[in-house]
């Protein structure tokens, strides 16, 4: 049956909307290639001078480095505690467990501005303002719920009898976890790690409150650039920021595909 006219019209509208969702973000690309010294669209000639300036600037480079360190450290922590917690809640699988899960997801839904106030008040007396440990801990709290969600989704499709079989065959708790459960939920762990990294890499609101001089992440420096709104180096930084996010996203897509194909092998019905 051919789809009716309204359905086809709606499909066309949906494509327009999807392009509207993605296209504006790409504006940073032409702006970053302008040969001028001010924010503008290139008219004719393109130039890489703003990238040269970006990669030649000690300030921008140190911000990249700091964002990478904070993103990697908080991702490692968040992935570890988020995965353990998801496995724990999966084993507990009780009403109390589901209530605890709801509490642990709160950092995702409580507005970052409130989280920023809370962290700030806690970190001032502890001397953690403007420090790596402070930002890493804050980003860990904010991103671990993403790991909890993705790993829990993987566990929902994991056959609990495999765990029982492993234990019945005499494997210890630790061996079962390492050799049976973790390989089974690898796509979820990887997806969680990717999401955790992107969320830390992009994070600005909490960072605005917790960083002053010594720790100055890439979004923090971009924020200043956007507020001043004169220097095209910001456009180059935006392109690089976006490229890293999209690279992480591509890793996730590939991992999903791989996960799906192994899934199909296991369910060898066809």
């Amino acid at each position: 049956m051919k789809p009716s006219a309204p359905v086809r019209l709606n499909a066309a509208l949906a494509w327009v909307l999807l392009v509207f969702l993605v296209a504006p973000a790409l504006v940073a690309i032409p702006v970053s290639l302008t040969p001028e010294r001010f924010l503008s669209f290139p008219s004719g000639e393109l130039s890489l001078r703003h990238y040269e300036k970006l990669f030649g600037s000690p300030e921008w480079m140190s911000s990249f480095w700091q964002s990478a360190v904070i993103g990697t450290a908080s991702t490692a922590l968040a992935t570890a505690i988020g995965t353990l917690c998801a496995i724990g809640l999966w084993r507990v699988s009780s009403k109390a467990g589901e209530m605890v899960r709801a509490v642990l997801l709160l950092p995702l839904v409580i507005p970052p501005i409130i989280a920023a106030m809370a962290f700030y008040r806690l970190f001032v007396p502890l001397g953690l303002i403007d420090s790596y440990p402070g930002l890493i801990l804050a980003h860990t709290v904010l991103s671990a719920p993403l790991v909890l969600i993705t790993v829990s989704a993987s566990l929902a499709g994991f056959d609990a009898r495999l765990e029982q079989a492993s234990r019945n065959l005499g494997a210890s708790n630790w061996t079962t976890m390492r050799r049976v459960i973790l390989p089974g939920i690898r796509p979820g762990v990887l997806a969680g790690a990717v999401f955790a990294f992107i969320s830390s890499w992009d994070e600005i609101v909490v960072t605005l409150f917790l960083s002053k001089f010594t720790v100055y992440t890439l979004p923090r420096r971009m924020w200043n650039g956007i507020r001043e709104n004169t220097d095209p180096t910001v456009a180059a930084a935006a392109v690089v920021l976006m490229a890293v996010t999209l690279a992480a996203f591509a890793i996730w897509v590939l991992a999903q595909r791989q996960g799906r194909s192994t899934h199909q092998e296991t369910a060898s019905e066809r």
Partner: peptide
């Protein structure tokens, strides 16, 4: 015993997030 695995995350959220809020 599953609760032991939940504990690190729960403690972190309790100490760094819920408490300060």
């Amino acid at each position: 015993p599953g609760w032991i695995l939940v504990l690190p995350f729960l403690l972190l959220v309790g100490a760094l997030f819920i408490g300060p809020i």
